[in-house]
């Protein structure tokens, strides 16, 4: 309270948050014509806000949202089935070839210098590491975009 009257903040508290308003303030407003008139102004504001028309969108929100959502993947996809089938066939083919011609395969590698083998392995690992780093960077970028939304 300032002087003999309540502050603007206290009047707002009395009108908008009456449960949190101390009794002393409520009693003053109810007994003081000046403060009661100020409170009446806020009551009109409150009534005006309550009368404010509820917003309505001029389209069907639910329908418009469902239209743009990505469609769920169907249980059977011919493309995915073909990709899996080819991958399995390829792995089986390599395994059968390796088993049938294992002596020749061993001979091929026996003729190569160990340093050359190491070179090939290191190159392959480097390429793989670069690929993984690239994938990770892309993932981080996507996460940053999502977080900024």
């Amino acid at each position: 309270m300032t002087g003999n009257h309540v502050t603007e903040l206290e009047i707002q508290q009395y009108v908008f948050d009456k449960t949190d308003c101390p009794n002393q303030i409520a009693e003053h407003i109810e007994s003081c014509d000046g403060c009661a008139a100020r409170a009446a102004g806020y009551r009109l504001v409150f009534t005006g806000i309550k009368q404010y028309p509820k917003p309505v969108l001029d389209f069907d929100l639910e329908k418009s949202v469902l239209e743009i959502l990505p469609k769920p993947a169907s249980a059977f996809s011919p493309e995915i089935f073909l990709a899996y089938a080819l991958s399995i066939a390829l792995i089986i083919g390599i395994a059968v070839f390796g088993f049938l011609y294992r002596d020749r395969v061993v001979k091929i590698f026996a003729g190569i210098l160990p340093i050359a083998v190491y070179l090939v392995i290191i190159t392959a690992l480097t390429v793989c590491a670069l690929q993984v780093m690239d994938i990770y960077k892309k993932y981080q970028k996507k996460m940053r975009v999502l977080k900024s939304m």
Binding site: L61, K71, P72, A73
Partner: peptide, 24 residues
């Protein structure tokens, strides 16, 4: 889990709040 249609329930539950924010 892939049930995109369940999202419509979320739209229904939040329609009032989102409409209020958009329109204001």
């Amino acid at each position: 889990r892939g049930n995109t249609n369940a999202f419509s329930e979320i739209v229904r539950n939040t329609r009032g709040l989102v409409t209020q924010i958009i329109c204001r």
